[in-house]
């Protein structure tokens, strides 16, 4: 059993989820509370990865991180090697690809917190940030956990984007799904079956935890 792709995939998914917490929360907060009339455009952009074929997204990311793009050049000047076909490039693509899976649950959780609770906190003298940390975030815990887990799980299973952006470099960009594909191509069905089973069990366990947690959340924090 080849563990390298599994470890790599877990690392990629974990980091992606982590970055999405940091990046997705402000975006989700803005989407949930902004009254900007063109907000729907931003919402569409965030949702794009849901409908775009992974190859299309992967193609654009590949162009964006390539040595001829400003981003690619800036990155190469900063760290000394190109971004394409590296783990960092793959991470960048994964964050974009899983963005809606984090932002949408976050935003809907923030949006369903009773605005009166937020206003109550403001009138009690708490800043917007303190209010977010002490009222909005705890009351959105279920949605935040859902968003983190969904983006983690979604990254675990990505294929097209990895192939386009990362290629197939063992230990660097060769994730589980690529590994399974390779095994099948090589007619090594036993190896593919083992890895596939690990992925299947893992996904099932993760989702079970999320749903169990979501149910318990309402018992621990009775809303009304």
């Amino acid at each position: 059993m080849n563990w390298l792709p599994i470890v790599l995939t877990l690392k990629l998914a974990g980091l992606t989820a982590l970055i999405l917490v940091a990046v997705g929360m402000p975006i989700a907060y803005w989407l949930a509370y902004s009254r900007w009339r063109w907000k729907f455009l931003a919402e569409s952009v965030v949702a794009l990865p849901l409908v775009l074929p992974p190859t299309v997204l992967g193609f654009y990311v590949l162009v964006a991180v390539g040595p001829k793009s400003p981003l690619g050049q800036w990155y190469q000047a900063l760290v000394g090697h190109p971004l394409a076909f590296t783990f960092e490039g793959l991470l960048f693509a994964s964050v974009l690809y899983s963005l809606p899976f984090a932002v949408q649950p976050f935003a809907s959780a923030f949006g369903s917190v009773d605005p009166k609770l937020v206003e109550a906190s403001w009138t009690l003298g708490k800043s917007r940030l303190a209010t977010f940390l002490r009222v909005t975030l705890p009351l959105s815990a279920a949605g935040v956990v859902t968003g983190v887990v969904l983006s983690f799980a979604h990254t675990m299973g990505e294929f097209g984007v990895v192939l386009m952006v990362g290629g197939n470099i063992p230990g660097v960009t060769r994730t589980v799904s690529i590994d399974i594909y390779d095994e099948v191509q090589a007619l090594n069905y036993t190896g593919a079956a083992e890895t596939a089973l690990v992925l299947l069990i893992f996904s099932f366990v993760i989702l079970s935890i999320v749903y169990a947690l979501n149910r318990n959340m309402w018992v621990v924090w009775p809303m009304r």
């Binding site: 206003e119 109550a120 009138t123 924090w221």
Partner: peptide
């Protein structure tokens, strides 16, 4: 002036207690 700066006590009609 933002609500934080006014030092008022606002009692909401349905009380708006923090459920958590």
């Amino acid at each position: 002036a933002p609500p934080q700066a006014r030092g008022v006590g606002y009692l909401f009609q349905d009380y708006a207690l923090f459920p958590h």
